[in-house]
C-alpha cells in the first residue's frame, strides 16, 4: 500500500496526534542536519495539523489536483514544518526526511516549488506569498472554482510594504476565497517582532484594510479549528485573516524555556533529548 493510502485511511487519528507527529518529524529532520528552524516548526505545528487534517481539501496522491485548496508557504524558512505536515498527510514519503537539507534532496532548507511536491510556491524572499495568493484567488474565481487559497506568513513579513499593498488589493477585489494565516510568534531575525518593528495593533490594521480578522492562540487546537471554520464560513465576500499567537518550540519544554531566537540553537546531543521530551507529552 502506498504512503498516501495509508495516511488517508487513518481517519481515527486525532488532530492532537497529528500535531504531535508533525513536531516529531520536524525534530527528526532537525536531527539530520543538526540544525533547522525548529522553533518555528514546533510553534506552527498545531496550525498545520488543523490546516491539513481539518480545513484543506486535497488529494495526497495527486498534489496538483485542480480542485485542491492551495496552501502557499510564503515563509520559505518554515519548510521543515511544512515537509513534516506533507509527510503526515501522505503527500511526501516519510523516508525522505533523512535527506532533509542535503545535496540533491527534495527537501531543501528553504521551501521551493520546483523541488517538492505539495510546495505551491518558492517562498523565502519574504513578503511575496500574499501577492501570489491574490493572483491565484483571482484566477480560481475566474475558473469558478470552490477552492480556497491559504497563505502562511509571519509577523516579520508584516514589516514589508508588499504585504500591505496586497492587503489593500485583496479587499478591493473582494477576495472571499483568500485566507491569510499569520504566525505571530513575536520573533524575527534581530529579536522580538514587537521590539524590532511593532505591527500592533495588528487586528485593527487588517480590519481597517477591509479584512475579516480573527486572533487566536495558535497552540490551542480547538481555537485554531474554530478560527479556520469561521474564516471559511464568512458570508460576505471579503478576504479573511487569522492571526495565530504561537509559542516557539512548543511541545519541547526545555527548548520553550531556552532564550528564544530566530535560529534556536540545539546542541548535537539535544535532538535525542528533545525527541524524548516530546514523547513524554504524546497525546493518548
Amino acid at each position: 500500500m502506498t504512503q498516501s493510502h495509508r495516511a488517508s485511511s487513518r481517519f481515527n487519528v486525532s488532530l492532537e496526534q497529528r500535531a504531535w507527529s508533525i513536531r516529531r518529524k520536524a525534530l527528526l529532520m532537525g536531527e539530520v542536519q543538526g540544525q533547522g528552524y525548529i522553533g518555528q516548526a514546533l510553534g506552527i505545528a498545531d496550525v498545520l495539523a488543523a490546516a491539513y487534517f481539518h480545513a484543506l481539501d486535497y488529494r495526497a496522491d495527486d498534489p496538483k489536483w485542480e480542485g485542491r485548496d492551495r496552501f502557499l508557504l510564503s515563509v520559505g524558512h518554515y519548510a521543515i514544518a511544512l515537509y513534516a505536515a506533507l509527510m503526515e498527510a501522505g503527500i511526501l514519503p516519510e523516508e525522505e526526511l533523512a535527506t532533509y537539507g542535503m545535496d540533491d534532496s527534495r527537501l531543501p532548507m528553504s521551501g521551493m516549488a520546483s523541488y517538492t511536491p505539495g510546495m505551491e510556491i518558492t517562498g523565502g524572499s519574504l513578503g511575496q506569498g500574499l501577492g501570489i495568493a491574490i493572483g491565484m484567488a483571482l484566477g480560481l474565481r475566474r475558473k469558478r472554482s470552490k477552492a480556497f487559497v491559504y497563505n502562511l506568513m509571519s509577523d516579520g513579513e508584516l514589516g514589508e510594504g508588499s504585504t500591505w499593498e496586497a492587503a489593500m488589493v485583496a479587499a478591493h477585489h473582494r477576495l472571499g476565497n483568500l485566507i491569510c494565516l499569520v504566525d505571530f510568534n513575536n520573533q524575527q531575525a534581530d529579536g522580538k517582532s514587537t521590539q524590532m518593528l511593532s505591527a500592533e495593533p495588528v487586528e485593527a490594521k487588517w480590519r481597517a484594510f477591509g479584512w475579516h480578522c480573527q486572533r487566536v492562540d495558535g497552540n490551542d487546537l480547538d481555537a485554531v479549528v474554530g478560527a479556520f471554520d469561521t474564516a471559511r464560513a464568512v458570508a460576505e465576500p471579503v478576504p479573511r485573516v487569522i492571526i495565530f499567537d504561537t509559542r516557539m518550540c512548543k511541545g519541547v519544554p526545555f527548548l520553550e524555556r531556552r532564550e528564544i531566537a530566530h535560529f534556536v540553537r540545539v546542541e548535537a546531543d539535544e535532538w535525542v533529548k528533545a525527541l524524548s521530551a516530546l514523547e513524554e507529552g504524546r497525546p493518548a
Binding site: E31, V32, E95, D104, S105
Partner: peptide, 26 residues
C-alpha cells in the same frame, strides 16, 4: 525537464546524520 527531475523521490543517503558539510543552511 529539470523541474520534473527534482520532483522524483529521493533515497536517504547512506551516511545520514549530517555532521558533514552537506547542508543548504543559510
Amino acid at each position: 525537464a529539470s523541474r520534473a527531475r527534482k520532483h522524483e523521490p529521493r533515497k536517504a543517503p547512506v551516511t545520514a546524520g549530517g555532521k558533514g558539510p552537506t547542508t543548504s543552511a543559510m
